[in-house]
């Protein structure tokens, strides 16, 4: 049986060329262009996807390393008719300008809310052991791997704060 990677519920064969990054696999091999290539060096976060529930930079990993894994991209989070809670909040709060970083921001924030729910601490957390209070400072630190060159940060934080306060999508 050929090695496969499951993306948004559909299995796809792993590419033959080992150089193919998970990002290029998503965009060029299976046509899911929602995930964006920014720096291609793990610095900007535009390529953030969720692999087995964990957010990673898809540019800094090889597709060949992910056979058997389950990947969720922005296309798997919601649709124009049925957006996820975060997608809706980004629209309501105008959490973007050009929109290029937005799929990465939303995938990142989606997984980040799970990390908060699991009480994973961050560099901004006062205590490593007590329950973490959701704050703008926590969100900014936890989202520092996602750059927005338009500078929509204030609205991105507002969108995430709203969803974080109102429960999960």
């Amino acid at each position: 049986m050929a090695d496969t990677i499951t993306v948004n519920g559909t299995a796809h064969p792993v590419p033959d060329d080992p150089r193919v990054s998970l990002l290029d696999f998503l965009r060029q091999h299976i046509g899911l262009t929602g995930t964006k290539k920014g720096c291609d060096h793990g610095q900007c976060g535009a390529c953030t996807v969720i692999v087995n529930g964990i957010r990673i930079n898809s540019c800094l990993t090889l597709a060949a390393m992910h056979d058997g894994d389950s990947v969720t991209t922005i296309e798997g989070l919601g649709t124009p008719d049925e957006p996820s809670a975060l997608q809706r909040a980004f629209l309501e709060h105008d959490g973007f300008q050009c929109g290029y970083c937005t799929p990465g921001q939303i995938c990142s924030a989606t997984a980040m809310l799970e990390e908060l729910a699991a009480n994973w601490p961050s560099d901004a957390s006062e205590s490593l052991e007590e329950s973490i209070a959701i704050s703008g400072e926590e969100i900014r630190e936890r989202m520092s791997g996602n750059l927005c060159r338009c500078g929509a940060y204030a609205n991105i934080v507002a969108a995430i704060e709203e969803v974080a306060a109102g429960g999960r999508s």
């Binding site: 930079n57 990993t61 990390e115 601490p121 961050s122 560099d123 052991e129």
Partner: peptide, 23 residues
Amino acid sequence: VRADYPVLSRAILAGATQQLRNK
């Protein structure tokens, strides 16, 4: 690690980004 080696948790959390630390 959080309870007994907090300096290690803190050092790791001070580096890189969540996406990078996850991988």
